[in-house]
Amino acid sequence: MDNHSTSIITQVSRDEEVNTHLQEKGAQSPASSSSSSSSKKRKNKPQSRGLFHSLFCCFCPDESEHIPDNSKPPLLVEENGSVSKTVKPLLPQIRSQDVGKICVLIDLDETLVHSSFKPVNNADFIIPVEIDGTVHQVYVLKRPHVDEFLQRMGELFECVLFTASLAKYADPVSDLLDKWGTFRSRLFRESCVFHRGNYVKDLSRLGRDLKKSIIIDNSPASYIFHPDNAVPVVSWFDDMSDTELLDLIPFFERLSKVDDVYTVLKQQRTIS
């Protein structure tokens, strides 16, 4: 095993996952003002020095820089909703059945599921992942109400999985998680922009109108280029009484009918 493999082989404990986080940013989840989730504090995706986050986390190991308030997309990306001529859009042409719909980018880890290398008795999925020639078993827990959430979102929007995790883990998880074909496309770590130690999901590279694009994510670092397009959610690990996704459905049902997401999201932040 080489030095790199050795440096990422240690599993990070859940306490470290919960307690180690970046400086909090972003608006409160729309549903949290009217549900039991309002009493929970959002936890950002943790930084890590272990194998776990070399697969899953959107932050690079050993990076301690806080999220800067004035973060800007790389210069090669335009900020008017179009993609620079030098950059190929991340998403294919819109399907005929999705024309006119809002494009919703949905995060995976700690938003829809929680995964661990530590054996979990009640795991919903067990995914074998090969790393440096060794097969590791990844135990995946589904967030409560994720099935209802994904099914309804797929009916209302053009949904895209957008995760900073590696495809060799996230793709098989998505195969098992998405029973309804909710995700029209899947974007993985290579589709992120590496910016100041973080894997950032740059919405301007999608090839979609930013006025009709939304990202659902528990990590503010993931959407620092476009915070006004974000619907933050509480990080989830193993609380089976969590109702975050269920509480979000009515909000998204209303949002699906608008032509400009900025107006609605701005109003919601004012209320929150």
Rank of each mutant, 00 (worst) to 15 (best):
D2I: 10
T6M: 12
S7Q: 14
S7M: 06
I9Q: 10
S13K: 14
S13I: 13
N19F: 07
H21E: 09
A27Y: 09
A31W: 14
S36C: 06
S37E: 12
K43T: 05
K45C: 02
Q47M: 06
F52Q: 02
H53A: 11
C57G: 11
P61V: 04
N70G: 06
P74I: 00
E78W: 06
T86F: 15
K88Y: 13
S96K: 15
D98A: 07
C103Q: 12
L105D: 04
E110I: 02
L112Y: 05
S115D: 05
N122W: 00
F125I: 01
I126T: 13
I127T: 11
I127D: 14
D132G: 01
Q137P: 12
Y139G: 02
Y139F: 09
Y139D: 03
L141Y: 06
L150T: 13
G154L: 04
E155W: 01
F162E: 13
Y169F: 06
G181V: 02
G181R: 12
T182E: 10
S185F: 04
L187R: 09
L187V: 10
E190G: 02
F194G: 06
F194C: 05
N198C: 08
Y199A: 08
Y199D: 04
R205G: 08
L206P: 01
I215Y: 13
I216L: 15
N218A: 06
S219V: 01
S222G: 08
F225M: 09
H226R: 00
P227R: 00
N229P: 01
V231Q: 01
T243A: 12
E244W: 00
D247K: 04
L248E: 00
I249K: 04
P250K: 13
V258I: 10
V264G: 15
L265G: 15
Q268S: 09
